[in-house]
Amino acid sequence: MHAPDDPNRYQEVLVSPMYLAGSNGTGDAGFAPVAHWPHHYLDEGPCQLLVTSPDQRIRIGWFGDDFDLWKIAAASEAASATRWTATFNHVTPAEIVAGLTTALAHDYAEADAYDSNGRFLANPSMYWADAVLPLTDAGWKRGVPDKPGTVEIVAPDGQAGVVIDRRSYGPDDETVTLWAGPPGWGTRAEAVFTARTPSHLIAATAAAMADPAPVVRERHQIHREVAHLVSLTPVAPSTPQVPRAPTPLDVRRTAVTQAVHRAARFPRTAADLRVMAARSRTSASAQNRSGSPAPALAARSTFSASTPRRSR
């Protein structure tokens, strides 16, 4: 959308709706809620960064070079089989991932204090609507599903939605898919959850997706096929304060301060001290001339009285 030499290519803009903003190339927003958890940087394999809960029951993987950029899973024990999995592709904004990681961090903190099992391992609700309640509360409506046995909820602009597969599947099958953007490898964001994912975790992700607040992106990060579907507002630079005109008192204070700094930086030489001494003597003489003459006259009178007159 922008030529390499376009001066606006790297301009920061506010993008709305957020679910069409795409990825900014980093996972910072998604990892922020679990920044205090152990980080494991992997040199080999597709997973480049693995963040785990302290007991390793929750695992958040960053696959920087894959189509599925995020893989998040939970298990009852560190070495046991995965109970549920959520994957987010490379187009999904990290701010949507943060909806899930924030809920996981909250659930884990509560489990550590009150419940050893953890709400992040709870069974999903028997009502599919519980998982998408934030979307329906935000005005998203039921659409026409592509396949029988599925339910689709669509955003008012028709550019995002969720598909819920209600057919009977195994515990590890994918049953809920959040999507945004036109179909295509570089335009369609997808978040997919397996059957045993707790409903409140899907709802937390959906709530982040429906958040009307814009997100910051650089212009070149907006796909050209999505640009006409979003609202872009340049991030306004901070307005510099206009300095007020200095008052006469400010000028005098500045002059005194500069003089003190010069004196501290440049010690006076011997010649300077002699000049100062001469000026001091001159000032003293001037003071005597302008002051009372009594001391000088008294001195002359004393000298005259004590000196004998020479006879002629």
Score class of each variant (00 low, 15 high):
A111Q: 01
A32F: 09
P214Y: 04
T247G: 06
N288Q: 06
H36K: 10
F266G: 07
F67K: 01
S16C: 06
P171R: 09
R309M: 05
G143F: 02
A208C: 00
V226S: 04
A32D: 14
T92M: 11
V163P: 06
G158F: 09
P7R: 10
A210L: 03
K71M: 02
R57F: 00
G184A: 03
A270S: 14
D66V: 00
A131G: 11
D115T: 10
T239Y: 04
S301P: 01
T269F: 08
V91D: 03
C47I: 14
W37M: 09
D165Q: 05
G118D: 00
L20E: 11
E12G: 09
L178E: 07
Y41P: 13
A105N: 11
D5G: 03
L229S: 05
D130H: 01
N8A: 13
T247Q: 06
F303Q: 15
G22Q: 01
N89T: 02
E77V: 01
G149N: 11
H106G: 09
P243E: 06
P214I: 04
N8K: 15
A113M: 08
G170S: 14
I202K: 08
A264V: 10
V163N: 11
P214H: 04
Y114H: 14
D250A: 10
T239R: 14
H220V: 12
T102N: 13
V162T: 10
D112H: 14
A75Y: 00
A32M: 10
R274N: 11
A111V: 00
A29S: 12
S304W: 02
A305I: 11
L229M: 06
E218A: 07
G170A: 08
H220N: 06
G118E: 01
I58Q: 00
I60Q: 06
T102E: 14
G25S: 05
V192Y: 01
F193V: 06
G118F: 01
D157I: 09
A109S: 14
G22R: 02
V256W: 11
Y108P: 04
Y10R: 10
S292T: 15
S304Q: 04
D66K: 03
R309N: 08
V256K: 14
T307V: 13
V163Q: 13
K71V: 05
G186C: 01
R166M: 15
R57Y: 02
A73M: 01
V162A: 12
T87V: 10
G30Y: 03
R188Y: 03
H200A: 09
A98D: 09
D112S: 14
W140A: 15
P293A: 09
T85G: 07
Q287P: 00
L49V: 15
D173K: 12
K71F: 01
N24D: 15
S116Y: 03
R300D: 06
L133F: 03
L232V: 03
Y114N: 14
S301T: 11
S283G: 08
A138Y: 05
V260Y: 04
D65H: 07
V163Y: 07
I153D: 07
A203M: 05
D172T: 04
I72C: 09
T197A: 14
R274I: 11
Y114P: 02
I202G: 13
T307W: 07
F88G: 14
E218M: 09
